[in-house]
């Protein structure tokens, strides 16, 4: 194979990918703290909760068709503490706290989304 290991164009590609990634990190850092958490199971919103209504940490277990998933909702964020999925990706995500962040459990079809619009003032669903 006559192809070079590294060319000038490769450097341009590398810098572009790094710039896109860095821009994404900066964009995430500028997001405000989340004001509410919404939990979706498939297309259905199971519940929405405003963080200002959380006095004590709340543990919430979701029963889906494919297994159970347990969330810990605190005043400053939310995390998955236990899930009956084979890879455990959702539990390894850790706590999320900024608007726009999410936790996805693909095997169970559960998505936890934080939003910062401040329009939620209670528990629904």
């Amino acid at each position: 194979m006559k192809r070079k290991w590294f060319s000038v164009l490769d450097l341009a590609v590398l810098l572009t990918v790094l710039a896109l990634s860095l821009g994404g990190f900066l964009w995430l850092r500028t997001r405000e703290r989340a004001e509410s958490v919404s939990v979706f199971c498939g297309d259905e919103c199971v519940f929405t909760l405003a963080f200002e209504d959380v006095e004590e940490p709340v543990s919430h277990t979701l029963q889906t068709e494919r297994g159970t998933l347990t969330l810990l909702i605190e005043k400053d964020g939310v995390c998955v503490t236990d899930a009956a999925c084979p890879d455990g990706v959702c539990a390894r995500t850790g706590k999320i706290a900024r608007a726009g962040e999410s936790i996805v459990c693909a095997p169970l079809g559960v998505v936890v989304v934080l939003s910062g619009d401040g329009t939620v003032d209670g528990v629904t669903g």
């Binding site: 192809r3 290991w5 590294f6 490769d10 590398l14």
Partner: peptide, 8 residues
Amino acid sequence: LGVFGISL
């Protein structure tokens, strides 16, 4: 492109 660029 080099091998690295294609791989990336």
